[in-house]
Design a binder for these strands. Structure first.
Length: 305
DNA sequence: GCCCAGGTGTCTG
DNA sequence: CAGACACATGGG
């Protein structure tokens, strides 16, 4: 991690192949998003550092990512945590050279890496948030998923108000573990979704499931197995969370509808590709399936889908 | 009104 | 082990 602590702000020196504006396009994809705001080229996000909520204002100059603290100044210890958080959020540890090398010779990806050069996977560092968001998004359209997430966060999350805007922390697993399914059904969760959500929260609150223990597995198959063992987490949710939270570029949510639509578009098909066809197309992506998927998702925001 | 949605669990042959 | 089906509600 390459960063400079300036006391009242911090600077993070990103690697090459990083385009902040491209990342903002992805972050701006829904106007119902509650977990952050994008305004005037800045990303505003509330996070918890050293147990304290801190509002971040993240911008980019020619050579550095600048993080300012409009609402309250974090301690020195917190500033280090914040730098690490931003580093993880934009997946800055990754060397994209091998991905671009592979993609430049790929018939689907080569145009995308040109158009979105420097886009990195925007991560969800909090495992409970990643799992909860995936469960919310199962089998409903994305617009409604954002509505449900907003209600959920505004009901059970922590808020910081600053200059007339509300910024939110995602609810803790502990809070959600103590709910009854009817509580979530009141927010228009289906009974099934409510059960999954509370069940996963209980696993995390009890410590049986944690980001640390999953990261220790250090093997994609083992990680998938551990996640899929939990009720409500199938292959898609497991791979989505590994891709967004658990730091593997080989995770591949192959059944994802967005992926299917993006491929249909990129290949000029009049139907969505079958799983077997996708496996053939993706044979060339070995080790970079998550990045391929992410760039394909990004392509959907250009096509009016 | 109808089809689809960033799926999963369960049941059946 | 593949295939059918229920779930549950909004968006377009």
């Amino acid at each position: 991690m390459d960063w400079i602590d300036r006391g009242t702000s911090i600077e993070i020196i990103p690697p090459s192949e990083f385009d902040f504006k491209e990342c903002l396009v992805y972050l701006e994809r829904s106007d119902r998003e509650v977990m952050h705001q994008v305004r005037n080229g800045f990303l505003y996000k509330l996070i918890k550092a050293n147990q304290e909520p801190v509002l971040l204002k993240i911008g980019k100059s020619s050579d550095a990512i600048h993080v300012e603290f409009p609402a309250n100044y974090p301690s020195s210890k917190s500033r280090r945590e914040i730098a690490a958080y931003v580093w993880e959020l934009f997946d800055l540890e990754r060397d994209l050279t091998p991905f671009y090398e592979m993609a430049s010779r790929d018939k689907v990806l080569h145009t995308l890496i040109d158009k979105y050069h420097g886009l990195r996977i925007i991560r969800i560092p909090d495992l409970f948030e990643a799992l909860a968001w995936a469960i919310i998004g199962q089998q409903i359209n994305l617009a409604f998923a954002y509505t449900l997430k907003k209600r959920f966060v505004e009901q059970y999350g922590e808020k910081l108000a600053y200059k007339g805007f509300d910024f939110w922390l995602f609810p803790d697993a502990q809070t959600i573990a103590s709910l009854e399914t009817d509580d979530l059904k009141g927010l228009q969760f289906s009974a099934r979704k409510a059960e999954y959500m509370i069940g996963v929260a209980k696993e995390m609150a009890s410590g049986k499931l944690s980001k640390e223990s999953l990261l220790q597995k250090n093997d994609l198959g083992e990680m998938q197995k551990a996640l899929i063992a939990i009720r409500g987490i199938g292959a898609w949710t497991a791979d989505y969370c590994i891709m967004k939270c658990l730091n593997s570029t080989a995770a591949f949510p192959i059944s994802d509808v967005g992926l299917h639509n993006a491929l249909k578009m990129q290949l000029g098909m009049n139907r969505k590709p079958a799983i077997e066809e996708i496996k053939e197309i993706a044979a060339n992506w070995k080790g970079w399936e998550a990045y391929a998927t992410f760039y394909l998702w990004r392509s959907l925001y250009d096509e009016g889908l």
